[in-house]
Amino acid sequence: MTTQFNRTAIYISLGLSIALVFGVIFGAKFVFENTAKAPVAISPIKSDFADSPQCSGAVDALPSDFMGHPRAEVAEPVPAGVAAWASTSTDEVTLRCGVDLPLQYTSYSQPQDIDGSRWLEVSDMTPGSTLTTWYNTDHFPTLAVTTFDDARPSGLDSALHKLDSRSPSPAPAPLSQLAAGPDAMCGEL
């Protein structure tokens, strides 16, 4: 006994299977692209100079592409003096203007030179975190760039030119002001 297959039913099944595979691929691409374009949430923090004319000018002068990412929309409510760039929801770079320098900025700090400007690197010490924030130390108000990796904030010359060229005072380094202890005399014997 021979079994015959209905070729028309097989071709229809094959065509539907191929159409479903392409539908899933294009649907996943659509969902991924829309998730990547979701507004970046930036929480408000104390930024006394974020509303200053210098910060407004710096934010207006920011590039449309920065550190390999396109400019992203910031979620409401948008704090003053902020901007964001993102390729995906996990690859985000944020910028804040008018923030205070961290207490890590002391006379012992060694800011790095990036494009002729001085930047202090502060890494998040939370286990598993790869966030790094870079603070500009030779312009006022201060710019802070937070990256999802250790990438250096290169390409902000036009924004920095909108700020005042002056270095803020470093935070005190309390340990440097301690009096020498009794063991300090041991080396003089």
Rank of each mutant, 00 (worst) to 15 (best):
S89A: 15
L16D: 07
G181K: 00
P39D: 06
S117E: 15
T130L: 13
G57Q: 08
S56N: 13
P53H: 01
I18V: 15
V78C: 03
D124T: 13
A28W: 11
V24T: 09
S107W: 09
F30D: 14
G98Y: 00
T126R: 05
G116E: 10
P141Y: 01
E76T: 07
R166I: 12
A80K: 14
Y105C: 02
D48S: 08
I10Y: 03
N34G: 06
C97E: 09
T146S: 10
S169Y: 10
R71M: 12
K46C: 04
P141K: 03
Q110I: 07
S56E: 13
A36L: 04
M67F: 12
R7M: 10
D164Y: 08
T88Q: 10
F32R: 11
F32M: 12
T137C: 05
L103V: 14
V21Y: 11
V78T: 07
Q104M: 08
K162P: 02
D164V: 15
Y105D: 05
S64K: 10
Q110H: 05
A36V: 05
G181W: 03
C97Y: 00
A171V: 07
Q112N: 12
M185L: 15
F30Y: 14
D91I: 09
A180Q: 05
D51I: 03
H69R: 12
S169M: 14
T8R: 12
R71I: 13
S165E: 15
W85G: 07
S47P: 00
G98D: 01
E76S: 12
V78Y: 03
D138Q: 04
S43W: 03
V99P: 01
D113T: 15
S167P: 02
R166H: 10
G81N: 01
N6L: 10
P182W: 06
S13A: 15
L160T: 04
E73T: 14
D113E: 15
A50F: 04
V24P: 01
Q112L: 13
V145M: 06
I10C: 03
R71K: 10
K37P: 01
V122D: 08
S117G: 11
G57C: 08
A61I: 06
T147Q: 06
S169F: 10
T35A: 07
G23Q: 06
F32P: 00
F5D: 00
Q110T: 14
G98M: 00
S167Q: 09
R7S: 07
A9F: 08
S107Y: 09
T146V: 04
L14T: 15
A144W: 07
D150R: 05
P153V: 04
L189S: 09
H161K: 14
S169N: 14
E33N: 10
P170S: 07
D115E: 11
S47I: 00
L175G: 02
A171M: 05
G27E: 04
Q177T: 09
T137E: 03
A173W: 13
A83K: 02
R152H: 08
D150H: 01
A180P: 02
G128H: 04
E73S: 13
A19S: 06
Q104R: 04
K162S: 14
A36D: 13
T94H: 02
S154H: 10
A50T: 03
P53Y: 00
L95F: 03
G128L: 07
V31S: 12
A38L: 07
S167H: 00
P77L: 11
R152W: 06
F66E: 05
W119L: 09
S107P: 03
P127N: 03
P77V: 11
A171G: 02
P53W: 01
